[in-house]
Design a binder for these strands. Sequence first.
DNA 1: TAATACAAATTGAACGTTCATTCGGTTGCA
DNA 2: TGCAACCGAATGAACGTTCAATTTGTATTA
Lengths: 211, 211
Amino acid sequence: MNFAPQVSPNTPMLAADRFSDKQMAVMRATMRLVVVQGIHATPMSQIAKEAGVAAGTIYHYFTGKEELFAVLYGMLKEQMGAALLRDDDPRQPYNKRFQQFWRNLYRFFVEHPTEFEFLELCERSPIISEDIRAEHMRHYQPGLNFLNIGIKTRVLCDMPLDLMSATIYSSIATTVRYIRQRKEAQTLESNEEYTILNTAMQSCWNSVKWF
Amino acid sequence: MNFAPQVSPNTPMLAADRFSDKQMAVMRATMRLVVVQGIHATPMSQIAKEAGVAAGTIYHYFTGKEELFAVLYGMLKEQMGAALLRDDDPRQPYNKRFQQFWRNLYRFFVEHPTEFEFLELCERSPIISEDIRAEHMRHYQPGLNFLNIGIKTRVLCDMPLDLMSATIYSSIATTVRYIRQRKEAQTLESNEEYTILNTAMQSCWNSVKWF
DNA sequence: TAATACAAATTGAACGTTCATTCGGTTGCA
DNA sequence: TGCAACCGAATGAACGTTCAATTTGTATTA
């Protein structure tokens, strides 16, 4: 069920553009409310109100609450995958590219705090089924390939691929959470973020580089 | 509200023993159901049934659903703090002690998968208030002190303490999740766990040691 | 030892509320 | 004119919580 604007099937639209305004409004409202109140405490009626839409309208676009979450989760994962690859230059040395990827995800999360928190919530909640979760792993694939090359060429240490990717993701997420906390507490000096970011990135590189 | 068995106030009981059988049954049932269904989808009535207790009994021990979660969260945090310090020998070299701590948490989580998953859920869900969360940070304190010494003596790298502790925790949690997945998929050879654990621990140490 | 008394523990039906979802109707565009 | 988009009151199921009644455990009395 998806009555979004159609284009030729050869130009794959991504993320946001695939959805109508109302659809996006509903999804954005969902994120905003859920990160503050939790899934268990945000009723569809409130989502509708926050989105400026009638309750029934949500059911025009989504079959129910579960699908709403799944579609939203998928959209965010796709955006993440796109952000990951930004400005990648394959001619650069391996660890430069690694740092580019790391920074890309970091920036995406820092610039999209609500999306970040919502994903963090979903990642560990049974509201997203294992199937949906596995399906959206594909957005990561280029990153996994990149890591795999590093392992094979002994630039990266001998660690199971999935463990390594999870480790790196954790490093980024942890850093983002830390920075956000410091920003909220307003204890972050002007260019301290830059220093911390570099320390965290270096630390992450040290944890996966060949040793 | 806590009608648990009393002892002299000088012998601080910890964790599980503080609660009556029924109380524990309720908390355990809560964990079991929540990690499978999510907070939003586990009603009190079901918790009561799973615990072998009448609905009203829950409200004899807890003021409501929220307090039930908070108390459960606190108990698990306390158990975690106790597990962390097991077999610590201050005469050992710094990185041996570090490894002991790392392994302690790792084992605690691997041996208590339901508790682990429940905590992971709580850690990112607004169901636990910031206050409750901050209050139970104290169970971590010895670990934080240990890290602080490492930073001061330049055994560990110059990284904000909170970021470092979160990084280490993430490393452990990520490893536990990875191992659990492999166990579930039954693709884990006999002593592969030991190899992976050591790789992950080494990787973690590399990410925080002085560089 | 048996009888009594009393409070804490426990029960589960009942209550009022809130929830996800439905549906008959209206709007606006092609 | 027709059809998708949209509305919001209505619906019935399910929820968290309450409470009057009952059981259990234990201390007290005779």
